[in-house]
Design a protein around this nucleic acid. Structure first.
Lengths: 344, 344
DNA sequence: AATAGTACTTAAAACGTTTTAAGTAATGGG
DNA sequence: CCCATTACTTAAAACGTTTTAAGTACTATT
């Protein structure tokens, strides 16, 4: 019945009484084609319902017009937001996206996914996995040389790599300085797991800010959580037990801040009167909690978009044979002050 | 310096003193190769660092081993969760994922993305955009026939399409029945935008459940929100103004439920003593709100995985030349009871 | 009227695989 | 010792494009 033979550029050529090369010329627009021929070809394409085969095109062009994205934790707010930014800019630049998710972001062996992307001849790769423990160990010049250009998200600055990230240290400073300005003096912190680079950076921002205000490092003010609300709840309980005098908490993400709010409720500490609370991430829920949550907003979609732009220029450079310089780009976050920290 | 000439199967063949066909045979494993030759080839591959070009392979195989995913709203909890499920099962089945995001999920013109996926010769397509208004209008047999197999997520049952979805009507029933069992009698609902199929389904579940308990439809108990917490907050205020006697609210997602909780706080209504609240989605924050939120948990990762499985069998069927039957699969959600609705 | 230049077209050669059909060498049976 | 059979190998032909180098037909110039 339906022989569904795929129709190729040759069928179009035959129908328009012209050679395949000419059809290709009108398709790519790289070479002029006389008006009558062009329109003859166009109607032939239309009538046959011809759809070019991008695989064949990519094969000869040696470029697939696609980017590989390796991400993890997509079920969380941050990563998915970043991906949206990546996708929108990829669209603008005409790239398709090949998505790979890492189930264990701490795993160091990633050669399989990299090989696959390479085999599919992606033009560039965005590495959107958080830096945890030694999961960056594969980033060595020998491996990078065999890969298409790579842009890394959310990792420590490194001379041999292009990196786009939000400025976690600065973000933490914003929050802590705000708490200081609000009159708080004993500001505790609930960090993320310290194998995470981001967690260390935010802790460093807290340290630096307190140091600048003349306080010296006090380990009893630090609790290491694991990003979950449960750990925030437990963290506050422990901190209160150790240091009943604390008057502010900087929770390194909003989930943990949520746990803190809950623990405060049961501990009978009013927020913000008895204890000011600031979070990090500015998740959509933050504005509607009771009390609404002061938080640090990262411009994650911008991170994603910038990553694509940076990658795009690197790709262009390499296709010219030039070696593109590696850059590190930090995007400044912004503090959103809400009820949980405003004394009024 | 580095001439970065890509190394092909022919280079390997030459080095192993063998023909390209034989190398292909050990690569694909479809035809036997004598042990000494095989190992000679293997070491040649190893030494040259050969990486097969999947584009070329796909060209001759007429199958790219990849699935196209068209999604939207990825920054929200549900869609990203579903995508994670899709990705994990795609991995199991050996498919790569080509991701396209729709910025306006209500837009009806989607031919551009479909064309692109088709041009890239994906083996199948997962349509993960919510059904809103007429954005399903393109689903007509003529168009479907030109496409590779498609699986639709979250839409109304339709004979000509394979559909995987959670059972929204049943989920709503779970929540409302639970509120009835808790002794509530005036159960209001805050719906999503009623152009959304899911919103209509959940409303229908509420209606059905109340009808079964002998109550007849009462429009003053219905408020149409837009999925945002802000609309939930406003919804509760309006409902209370209209009907001060309501003793329970079913908010059709957790964001709106969050707004309801906030509004209750300011209106001085205690939850659950004065007003029981149930949400939908069971977002991670639900368990840590004060009070923690009763909600309907959808098994979204399962939806994603099932979609891939269903697509996989459809692909297999079509490659055999058979027409695969269309199926509709509804996945039952589950109610998670928490403080916001338990009278104890 | 010959030459040069312009403006398109085209046949053929890539691109890097897999598959087909044919070939070869070794083994076994009669 | 010949013929089948088995077990691999291989050269060549796809797959569907783009690009290169070579035409071809005009027009403009001398």
């Amino acid at each position: 019945m339906h022989n569904r033979q795929t129709i190729t550029i040759i069928d179009v050529a035959r129908k328009a009484k012209v050679s395949a090369g000419t059809v290709s010329n009108v398709l790519t627009g790289k070479r002029p084609v006389a008006e009558p021929t062009r329109s003859r070809i166009l109607t032939a394409i239309e009538e046959l319902g011809y759809q070019p085969n991008l695989l064949a095109r990519s094969l000869v062009n040696r470029s697939s017009n696609s980017l590989g994205v390796i991400a993890s934790g997509l079920e969380y707010y941050g990563p998915s937001r970043t991906l949206v930014g990546i996708e929108s800019q990829a669209n603008v630049r005409g790239y398709s996206l090949l998505l790979d998710l890492l189930h264990d972001p701490a795993a160091a062996d990633v050669s399989a996914v990299l090989d696959d992307l390479q085999a599919r001849r992606v033009d560039g790769i965005i590495w959107a996995v958080h830096q945890i423990g030694r999961n960056r160990a594969w980033i060595v010049p020998e491996r990078l040389r065999t890969l298409p250009p790579v842009v890394f998200l959310t990792m420590e600055s490194q001379p041999q790599a292009t990196i786009i990230s939000t400025d976690n240290r600065f973000g933490a400073t914003l929050a802590v300085q705000h708490l200081l300005d609000a009159g708080c003096r004993q500001i505790a912190i609930i960090t993320g797991p310290l194998e995470w680079w981001e967690a260390r950076e935010r802790l460093a921002g807290w340290c630096a800010c307190l140091a600048a205000s003349g306080q010296e490092y006090d380990a009893t003010l630090v609790y290491q959580g694991d990003w979950t609300a449960a750990s925030g709840e437990q963290g506050l309980q422990q901190l209160l037990a150790r240091r009943p005098d604390i008057d502010a908490i900087f929770a390194c993400n909003d989930q943990m801040a949520l746990g803190v709010l809950r623990a405060c409720h049961f501990a009978g500490r009013r927020v913000p009167q008895d204890l000011a609370v600031a979070g990090y991430d500015n998740m959509p829920e933050a504005a509607y909690l009771v009390p609404s949550l002061t938080s640090v907003r990262q411009h994650l979609a911008d991170v994603g978009r910038t990553a694509v732009e940076e990658l795009h220029t690197a790709i262009a450079a390499r296709s010219q044979g030039e070696a593109s310089p590696t850059v590190t780009r930090l995007i400044a976050p912004e503090l959103i002050v809400r009820e949980s920290s405003s004394s009024s």
